[in-house]
């Protein structure tokens, strides 16, 4: 007889939250490489395969747009099995239209970025709801299929989501389909123990997804998954949202600034007393080295 444990699900039951980048600026720029239609067919096949391997697996898809993000698919909501794809595509189209209509108004932060912080938070909220639904829940993980460049303005929000994912032990996997590496997602997978991968050949996206990202958390303990070559730990400053190598850190609340400030804009601590007392020292003696943000 099998021993009893509080965990009633088998180890390989997973809840996969997939964040799809639907930023039109990005997809317009990489048209030649992997058109969105092809990309989505790879993703649909991947989602089908996740649902295929275990009856209890659950997939939630979130679209990350330029101005908004929304749930476009949830496999736990009852629907006919053979209309999954139609359902998803229809919702996705509605979402893109809505996103576009928002775009005509004021943009959130500059051109070309997508709202990763928003969709990450929504994914975590969903997972929290699953956690609180009772003692019976599958193992959740997040997969970001992201292509747009990092929006430095979202730095704080994204870092906060990463840390809350770390706290609730939710790994964030990242598959970067853009041309550049994403520092945010590198940090996200590094901190949460997920996998970061930037596929070389985008034509075979499904193969990458099925070999690397379809691996459930239980099997990951026995497998050698791709490890990042290096992680870009650079942070963005809180004042101008620039990515910086060196900067100033508030000794009270650890806010980051690119220039010397008189008062911390986050916690209101007043800096520079030492300099005021001793005017002979130069105003900028040694900018503090920013420490890596690993926890």
């Amino acid at each position: 007889m099998t021993p009893v444990s509080s965990k009633l699900y088998t180890d390989d039951v997973s809840l996969l939250v997939v964040l799809i980048d639907t930023n039109p600026f990005f997809w317009n720029s990489v048209k030649s490489n992997l058109p969105f239609s092809k990309f989505i067919s790879h993703v649909l096949a991947f989602l089908n395969s996740i649902l295929l391997v275990n009856q209890q697996n659950q997939v939630v898809v979130l679209a990350t747009g330029h101005n908004s993000c929304d749930y476009v698919f949830d496999s736990s909501v009852a629907q006919s099995q053979n209309q999954r794809a139609e359902h998803l595509l229809q919702k996705l189209e509605e979402f893109v239209d809505k996103d576009e209509s928002l775009c005509r108004e004021e943009s959130v932060d500059g051109q070309g970025f997508s709202l990763l912080s928003g969709s990450l938070s929504m994914a975590l909220c969903y997972i929290q709801r699953v956690f609180r639904s009772g003692p019976l829940h599958p193992h959740p993980r997040i997969l970001c299929l992201h292509g747009s460049p990092d929006g430095p303005g979202q730095y704080v929000a994204i870092m906060n989501s990463i840390f809350s994912a770390q706290r609730s032990m939710v790994p964030i996997d990242a598959c970067v389909i853009g041309t550049q590496h994403s520092a945010f997602l590198q940090q996200a997978s590094y901190i949460t123990g997920g996998v970061y991968l930037k596929p070389q050949l985008l034509d075979g996206l499904f193969q990458y997804l099925s070999t690397v990202f379809a691996t459930d958390l239980h099997s990951r303990a026995f497998l050698q998954l791709p490890k990042p070559a290096g992680v870009d730990f650079r942070a963005s400053c809180f004042c101008h949202k620039n990515t910086i190598d060196m900067g100033y850190i508030c000794s009270v609340c650890l806010s980051i600034f690119c220039k010397h400030q008189k008062k911390c804009s986050t916690c209101g601590s007043v800096f520079g007393q030492a300099q005021a007392q001793d005017s002979s020292t130069p105003p900028n003696p040694n900018p503090k080295r920013k420490t890596p943000m690993d926890a």
Partner: peptide, 18 residues
């Protein structure tokens, strides 16, 4: 049958599917 396999075996099948 795929669903009944051990997790690692499932992964191998997916990996080799194409």
């Amino acid at each position: 049958i795929l669903r009944s396999l051990p997790p690692l075996a499932k992964k191998y099948v997916l990996q080799m599917l194409y």
